[in-house]
């Protein structure tokens, strides 16, 4: 029961990711008061072990902001950034780099950016989604990603990743934005745009 999609479907998902990330970058830009560049989004269906490798070295320290997604597109939104970039973002928000408020400030960034992405998807496809409150952790990349994938490993060996990069202009600071739909989530999206 491995998820498999044809090229047309993958293109459609890529386009949805592009529009979602575009809306998300506008929201981030407003919060930070900076211009945000958007890299072309990547949509891939991978064995879970490869998905971890694709995102970076498994032992690398990374800050992850996670939002659960409930409703008709169950899944997880995960934003990944290096701890150094997390500090830069906090400074842009006017906080001290090592402020105790940093995790909640990052959570709020995640909340606004993630919600705008999801709302854009919802607007285009007519699905109803409900994000859960954000959780921020700094830990090994592999440990964060595999814990999110593990929950859906019960229904598939493979996972769909919708992957976009938000780049803060002139700051050498980027955020990887991931939408990992649960099994069936992407089918629901494709169904709504008539490509299932």
């Amino acid at each position: 029961m491995s998820a498999s999609y044809n090229e047309v479907q993958l293109d459609a998902l890529r386009e949805l990711a592009n529009i979602g990330a575009g809306t998300a970058s506008t929201a981030l830009s407003e919060m930070l008061g900076r211009s945000i560049d958007l890299a072309v989004p990547d949509v891939s269906v991978l064995p879970m072990a490869d998905a971890v490798d694709q995102l970076g070295p498994a032992e690398q320290d990374i800050t992850g902001i996670m939002l659960g997604v409930e409703g008709e597109l169950p899944g997880t939104v995960l934003m990944l950034l290096t701890p150094e970039n997390a500090e830069k973002i906090c400074v842009m928000l006017g906080l001290e780099a090592d402020s105790e408020l940093a995790p909640s400030a990052l959570g709020e960034i995640g909340n606004v950016v993630g919600t705008s992405y999801l709302n854009a998807l919802a607007g285009m496809t007519g699905i109803a989604v409900e994000p859960t409150p954000p959780t921020t952790v700094t830990d090994m990349l592999g440990a964060i990603v595999e814990s999110i994938l593990a929950v859906r490993a019960a229904s598939s060996d493979r996972t769909l990743l919708l992957d976009s990069s938000l780049i803060v202009e002139g700051e050498d600071c980027s955020i990887v934005f991931l939408l990992v739909p649960d099994h069936g989530g992407a089918e629901e999206l494709l169904d709504r745009i008539g490509l299932a």
Binding site: M48, A49, V52, D53, A143, E146, A150, A153
Partner: peptide, 24 residues
């Protein structure tokens, strides 16, 4: 040993490694 994989060895110099275990 990545997610859902296993490995075994008795060869000198080998290391068995699982990187970044979270809930696994």
């Amino acid at each position: 040993a990545r997610m859902g994989e296993l490995c075994a060895s008795g060869t000198p110099g080998d290391s068995l490694v699982a990187l970044g275990l979270g809930s696994c």
